[in-house]
């Protein structure tokens, strides 16, 4: 058949000459390659001790954010659950009582907020949908676990640590040291 692409190459299989049939030169060639790899830098990252840095736009575990005064930003509008293509998010909303203004930013808040990490596909549509900038996929990857029920993360795992003056000072100190 005529070649249409002009990229056809006819491979010529010559019988091996004596040097090639001796086999030993080929062995030595191979051994040179393996010994070169022996002294190469290893690609392994010894995981628990050394962690590979995440890329900047890595989408990992979700976190529910707080505002500058340490109040939860989420208002339980349900847009994240609506936008979620994997149906991973569910929540129960509640009305903010008097005296809870320091806890919740809006008048309505999520009493229960659950993400099923086995369903989640980490697409990031929830953080795009959120009008309150309350949810971000800025955590590390979701750790392994034994039971399916333990992959349903509630507010205890999702909500950001409460803003703490001491922590802030420590962070500042760290920055100074670095």
């Amino acid at each position: 058949m005529e070649s249409l692409s002009n990229r056809k190459k006819v491979l010529e299989q010559k019988p091996m000459n004596f040097w090639e049939r001796m086999y030993l030169p080929a062995i030595i060639k191979g051994m040179r390659i393996t010994i070169r790899h022996f002294f190469k830098k290893k690609a392994t990252v010894s995981y628990p001790e050394v962690e590979r840095p995440y890329s900047k736009n890595y989408r990992g575990m979700h976190s529910l954010k707080r505002d500058e005064e340490g109040r939860e930003r989420c208002t339980a509008c349900g847009l994240c659950a609506l936008s979620c293509p994997a149906e991973a998010i569910s929540m129960i909303s509640a009305e903010r009582k008097k005296g809870e203004e320091h806890l919740y930013r809006e008048e309505k808040y999520a009493a229960v907020y659950e993400i099923n990490m086995l369903r989640c596909i980490f697409c990031g549509l929830c953080e795009e949908a959120c009008p309150k900038e309350a949810i971000y996929l800025d955590g590390p990857h979701v750790p392994a676990d034994y039971l399916r029920k333990d992959f349903i993360y509630g507010k205890n795992k999702l909500v950001e640590e409460r803003f703490d003056v001491n922590l802030l000072e420590m962070a500042n100190l760290k920055q100074e040291i670095n």
Partner: peptide, 13 residues
């Protein structure tokens, strides 16, 4: 170990 090193790994450690 040698196997690991020749395959660019660390071997058992």
């Amino acid at each position: 170990k040698v196997a690991g090193f020749m395959q660019d790994r660390n071997g058992p450690d």
